[in-house]
Amino acid sequence: MKDRVSMVFVQYGQIDVQDGAFVVVDQTGVRTHIPVGSVACIMLEPGTRVSHAAVHLASVVGTLLVWVGEAGVRLYASGQPGGARADRLLYQAKLALDDDLRLLVVRKMYELRFGEAAPARRSVEQLRGIEGARVRETYKLLARQHRVDWQARNYDRQQWDAADVPNRCLSAATSCLYGITEAAVLAAGYAPAVGFIHTGKPLSFVYDVADLFKFETVVPLAFHIAAKNPPQPERAVRLACRDLFRSSKLLARIIPTIEEVLASGGIDPPEAPPESVPPAIPNPESIGDAGHRAQ
């Protein structure tokens, strides 16, 4: 995963497999080759159609397909749900279901995010409140630094164009971060829905992990772009995020950070029960990451 390009956006084209290659065919029949095996995730914007063969090839090489709204500001579905490692799913679930272990993981997330130990004798709910207050202050600080008129983090998904430029830039930037974070979570063999701070949503764990990197990567970038007030802010943010992810080598950091956070619970991944039945047909050797399905 760490050696892959972060993401590719595709709009207005037919994605197919031709002559063994993953290609995008435009309305005039011109083919553009995408090296699918070296991309972490492919964002499919409106106007895109994808063939069964293309989805199959993406799943074989472990590339996440994500169906998103225009400029990636909404996420509708992802094409490789779940994880292929039951031991890691059970490990993650055990940490999330035990209140004491969950608190240890949340405290580690707080430490990594803010560079200091979490306040003692605080519940998850109390830490969440402290975190929210610090996040709001960080938004205000970045707005002052970049001389951006900032009111609050507020937007309506049903009336996207009515949002101000800073909020549109932030939403586009975090959408890019969520895409590659989900790809990394799946590659590591964990479940995007089993979160520790965020709960009850399909990408709860993705939000947890992305928050560890958000304010050192995409949030300052979003305010930087908003200060320029470009005519197409979402596109400008998307291109800037692509370059930032490459220069910061973010993909190389996400999975080790996930392992570090979960290890703070102090338990080992569960072993298979002695009475369990091994697979009748052993899994083939795979060059993919731990969470990718073997074909």
Rank of each mutant, 00 (worst) to 15 (best):
Q11M: 09
Q14H: 13
I15H: 00
V17H: 01
G20F: 08
F22M: 04
D26L: 11
S38K: 10
S38W: 11
S38Q: 08
S38Y: 02
A40G: 13
C41G: 10
P46G: 09
T48C: 12
R49W: 15
A53S: 15
A54H: 08
A54T: 04
A58D: 02
V60W: 11
V60D: 15
T63Q: 06
V66R: 04
V73C: 02
L75R: 10
A77P: 03
Q80W: 12
Q80S: 15
G82E: 00
G83R: 02
L89M: 00
Y91H: 15
K94F: 02
L95C: 14
A96F: 14
A96S: 11
A96P: 09
A96G: 06
L97D: 09
D98I: 06
L101Q: 01
V105Y: 11
R107N: 01
M109E: 08
E111I: 07
E116G: 11
Q126Y: 06
G129V: 13
G129S: 13
G129Y: 15
A133E: 13
Y139Q: 01
W150Y: 04
A152C: 11
N154D: 12
W160M: 03
D161V: 01
N167M: 06
L170I: 13
S175H: 05
C176P: 02
L177Y: 07
A188K: 12
F196D: 06
F196N: 05
T199Y: 08
P202Y: 03
L203P: 00
L212P: 05
F213W: 10
T217V: 08
V218K: 10
N229Y: 07
P231C: 01
Q232H: 13
E234A: 02
V237G: 03
V237R: 04
C241G: 01
R246Y: 11
S248T: 10
L250E: 03
A272E: 05
E275S: 10
P278D: 03
P279A: 03
A280C: 04
I281M: 04
E285R: 09
